Amino acid sequence: MQIRDLPAPVTASKADWLAGTTWLGFTPTEGDLTARNKCQSTIQRQFGGGYVIEYITEQFSEPNPGFENDPAYLTEREAHRALAGRLIAVHKLRTTARSLETILGAEEFKRLQDMWAQGGKRYRWSVAFPIVESYEIVGRPKAKDVLGEAAYRRLYQRSSATLRTLTDEERRLIADLELHQIATANSWIGIEDEFRLAEASEINPEVERAIGRDLAALEGMEAERLAKVKRRAAWIADRFIRERQRAGTITCDDCAFDPRDLAAELGVKPRGFLDVHHKNPLDEGIRYTTTADFALLCPTCHRVEHVRLRKSKRQVAS
């Protein structure tokens, strides 16, 4: 999988000292609610529903006095050396931020501020966006090698408390980077946020029934949560189909069967010859799934895929 295959564009970049694993944090200009809300709005506007590519800075800051030999700091500094100057990951952030103290707990947040807060302003990185979907960039290339000198300097020469928005040309430069999806501890936050969106949306009943069949093997959930998981999956599948219809790519993703000529001859819609298929049904409710988890298949290819899924499930069980 490459960056170009993501279901939404990479719209911005975050420069960090260390790799973000569960959240990306931003420091408001002041510690009051108004400043935090303003900071959140700025970040939301910058990533705009797209993905964020993470860059590790060349420099690593010094902690407050008394923490120079702190084991956690020394470990982090060593980890930084291996990643400095590299593009390391692509993240999908939750639409809205959470208080970092809520995410970390009061004790860990206090320790973080003791180590890094400057000038008594104990709200460093306090506006935190949970990471709900994450991909490691294979090989973690040097940013300069990927972007070239001019784009690199524009994005990273100066420090920034917010994100850097990418230009179309910068998106083109990173489009071929290979990705490997990694587990995300906060994926449940993104999933549950979308339960409400799915519940409030109209979904094609045929799509909902089809996805219900694909997810029939889901186990280990309470009935209410299972219903929400299935509804969300159908909501995503419905979006996937509409995106394909807008793009004019109503063909089988496995055998490339194009039903348009036949549909025109019979006076029916091409979509009726293809099934929507969930490629990873057992991931629902566990991983933050997207339109990339769905396919359009002709009935024969759809049947073959389900045979493969059943065979794979038996092999895992044995």
Rank of each mutant, 00 (worst) to 15 (best):
A227P: 00
D238L: 09
V307E: 03
C298M: 04
E222Q: 12
A72L: 11
Q118G: 09
E243N: 08
I137H: 01
W235N: 01
E265L: 11
A217S: 14
Y288G: 00
E54A: 10
T95K: 10
A295C: 12
A12V: 00
P281W: 01
T42P: 02
A223G: 08
P281A: 03
A97E: 01
R77Y: 09
A227F: 01
A79R: 06
E76K: 15
N204T: 10
H277Y: 13
P9Y: 03
F129I: 09
M1C: 15
A256G: 08
R77V: 06
E107N: 13
T11G: 02
N186T: 03
D258N: 09
S13P: 05
G20F: 03
R98I: 07
N280E: 02
C301I: 12
T167W: 15
A227L: 08
I189S: 02
E224S: 14
L296H: 01
P130G: 01
F257W: 05
L100A: 11
A72H: 07
R45A: 15
K110Y: 09
N64C: 06
L297C: 02
K14T: 01
V229A: 06
D293K: 08
A106K: 15
M221Q: 13
C39F: 07
T42E: 11
E206H: 01
H278G: 10
G119F: 03
W23I: 00
Y73K: 13
E149N: 11
G25I: 09
H180I: 14
W235S: 07
G48Q: 11
A200N: 12
I131F: 06
V268Y: 10
R153T: 15
L74E: 13
S160V: 01
R310N: 14
L93C: 13
I174E: 05
A161Y: 14
K38Y: 05
E208D: 15
L173T: 07
I43Y: 03
D70W: 05
K228L: 11
T22P: 00
G50S: 00
R98P: 01
S312H: 13
T75R: 15
K269H: 14
K313E: 13
L24N: 02
A84S: 15
A198H: 00
T95Y: 07
D253E: 14
D254C: 07
